[in-house]
């Protein structure tokens, strides 16, 4: 499992795109929002938590189609399926690698982009906490979407259609934490719900992903 994680990280670093692309996308979305809604700082600071969450979610989605497609094309998935590593574990590791290369940089970059959107000072901590807690769920759910559509040529759009509705609960609770944090309200309830979803998804989703991938490998 460690070997797979190391390899995926090395590939993301060397092939480029992994780290940089998602971050750049996140930045551009955040920059475009004021152009769309106007530069009033009180409006921006009110919608900042939601925009940052949405931007992170879309940046995550953007990189999902590379998650399994490359390994599918060169036959790695076939070989992994015949290896001693359970496919469930392999997919969880791949989701982890995706989180480290996409989710984690987004979490770290979010406070900087919060400055651009005039995020209230009390919001930074909760923005980072909610993203740190929520983005792993996005990666794991995204792996399921990738496993479903890996056999479909140019399945990127289809995958977005399948994955985005599955992102709804995570987005609602995550953005709620950030929003409540920014306005100084109590954050426990949505935070616990977000943590519950993330943990539940990490525990159960790999089984669904592996089932879908096995069907596709057949």
């Amino acid at each position: 499992m460690k070997a797979l994680l190391r390899r995926d990280l090395a590939l993301a670093l060397r092939a480029g795109g992994g780290f940089g692309l998602g971050l750049a996308f996140f930045l551009i979305v955040t920059v475009l929002v004021p152009f769309g809604v106007g530069p009033q700082s009180e409006l921006l600071s009110r919608i900042a938590p939601g925009i940052l969450w949405l931007g992170a979610l879309l940046a995550c989605l953007l990189s999902l189609d590379r998650l399994l497609a490359l390994d599918w094309e060169d036959g790695t998935l076939d070989l992994l399926a015949t290896s001693p590593l359970p496919l469930e574990a392999a997919l969880l590791v791949k989701a982890l690698a995706h989180w480290i290369t996409t989710g984690l940089p987004l979490v770290l970059a979010a406070p900087l982009l919060g400055v651009l959107l005039n995020l209230p000072a009390s919001g930074y901590l909760w923005l980072v906490v909610s993203l740190a807690l929520g983005t792993p769920a996005l990666s794991v759910i995204g792996t399921f979407g990738a496993a479903l559509t890996v056999g479909v040529k140019r399945g990127g759009l289809l995958m977005s259609l399948l994955v985005l509705p599955l992102y709804v609960p995570t987005l609602i609770f995550g953005a709620e934490v950030a929003r409540r944090g920014a306005t100084g309200m109590a954050t426990e309830t949505p935070l616990l719900m977000l943590a519950g979803i993330t943990l539940g998804v990490i525990a159960l989703m790999p089984f669904a992903s592996a089932a879908a991938l096995r069907v596709n490998l057949r």
Binding site: F144, L148, G151, L162, P165, L166, V168, P169, I172, F173, E176, T189, P190, M193, I197, M205, A208, A211, A212, V215, N216, R218
Partner: peptide
Amino acid sequence: TAADLTSVLCLVGSVFAVLSRYAVNFW
């Protein structure tokens, strides 16, 4: 293959539909 994959999606989707229902209620 389509039947298998859509069945898995339907199962997972059902769980998330219920989750979304509660999330939206909360929201």
